[in-house]
């Protein structure tokens, strides 16, 4: 069972969380001005890296907060989590 550190509640079991996909995908300010290709890029294209991946998670059975997490897709380890709107800490909780 993975433990995920909610930036508000601390370590909780993964069963309390929902996954939200890749983090940092800003919604374009003026969708109408985008080409189909540009819009499709926002809509569909995701990084899917092998290694560290920045993601959004939701503490669904707890404080209901969405937050950012960095996870190693090889080991599943969460290296750090941080609140929306804040910068991630420069050090990782665990090495990836």
């Amino acid at each position: 069972m993975l433990l995920i550190k909610c930036p508000w509640c601390g370590n909780r079991a993964e069963s309390e969380f929902n996954y939200g996909g890749e983090a940092g995908i800003a919604r374009p300010a003026n969708p109408d001005t985008l080409t189909d290709a540009e819009w499709a890029d926002y809509l569909f294209m995701r990084k899917n890296p092998k290694g560290l991946h920045q993601e959004q998670w939701n503490h669904a059975q707890g404080c209901r907060r969405w937050f950012n997490a960095e996870r190693d897709t090889v080991t599943y380890r969460f290296t750090r989590t941080w609140r929306i709107g804040e910068a991630p800490s420069s050090t990782r909780d665990v090495d990836s």
């Binding site: 800003a26 959004q56 907060r65 969405w66």
Partner: peptide, 13 residues
Amino acid sequence: LTWLERWLQTEWP
């Protein structure tokens, strides 16, 4: 509810 909260918290805080 989760959908609305998500937009509110992550995109339009």
